[in-house]
């Protein structure tokens, strides 16, 4: 199920603002579903409706972008995987931000979407570049933790565990977890409360 994610090339879409929560990414009314199909078209739907066509996700110059550039604490709030699912189904393959909410970050790992961080100065600079020149080519190199924006290379960060998961193609944890049944049973046997109920 899982394949190596070492580099991602394409173009970027800047989305400014701190604390953009998962309710804004995909409002709860779209969670009334039993599959993730169709979420992509509703990503940021209320923010977009109130922006009168000026939301980056509606602007023609960003329609083919695959790398999202956000600010601080992106994806805070609910644990809904519908949020990264909606972003991915819109076409995003990687996200650069100042920081990410923890559950959102983990959900992205599970979907094979790397979230890398950089300093606020660098992130803002890249957002400005993408606003001025939407066609600027981007190249994210996870092994070297580097993002090339046009001719400029910027350092980016990602925790080592997540980085290794992507570059070794092991970001889909399910297969590894189910393989360790023996160890799981050994651990379970040590837990006093499993015997109580």
């Amino acid at each position: 199920m899982s394949s190596e994610v070492k580099t991602i090339s394409g173009t970027g879409i800047p989305l400014r603002g701190n604390d953009i929560d998962t309710d804004r990414i995909i409002p709860a009314r779209f969670l009334r579903c039993v599959t993730f199909d169709g979420l992509g078209e509703n990503v940021f739907t209320d923010d977009r409706a109130s922006s009168n066509g000026q939301h980056p996700f509606d602007q023609p110059q960003y329609q083919n972008a695959n790398l999202l550039v956000v600010n601080g604490n992106f994806g805070c709030g609910s644990s809904r995987e519908h949020a990264p699912q909606a972003i991915a189904r819109w076409g995003i393959q990687a996200i650069l931000g100042e920081s990410f909410a923890e559950i959102f970050f983990g959900n992205c790992v599970a979907l094979g979407i790397p979230c890398v961080t950089a300093s606020p100065d660098i992130v803002t600079q890249i957002q400005t570049t993408l606003e001025q020149n939407p066609d600027t080519p981007l190249h994210l190199d996870l092994e070297n933790l580097e993002l090339q924006v046009g001719e400029t290379k910027y350092p980016v960060q990602m925790n080592e565990g997540a980085k290794q998961s992507f570059i070794s193609g092991k970001w889909d944890s399910c297969a590894q977890l189910v393989n360790n049944t023996q160890d799981i049973q050994t651990t379970a046997a040590k837990l006093p409360y499993l015997a109580w109920s």
């Binding site: 990264p84 959900n107 977890l177 360790n180």
Partner: peptide, 18 residues
């Protein structure tokens, strides 16, 4: 702690999380 749906799958399948 809260988890996403892929992790719900992981817990159902293995009773564990990464």
């Amino acid at each position: 702690f809260g988890i996403g749906t892929s992790q719900v799958r992981d817990v159902l399948a293995s009773q564990t999380l990464a």
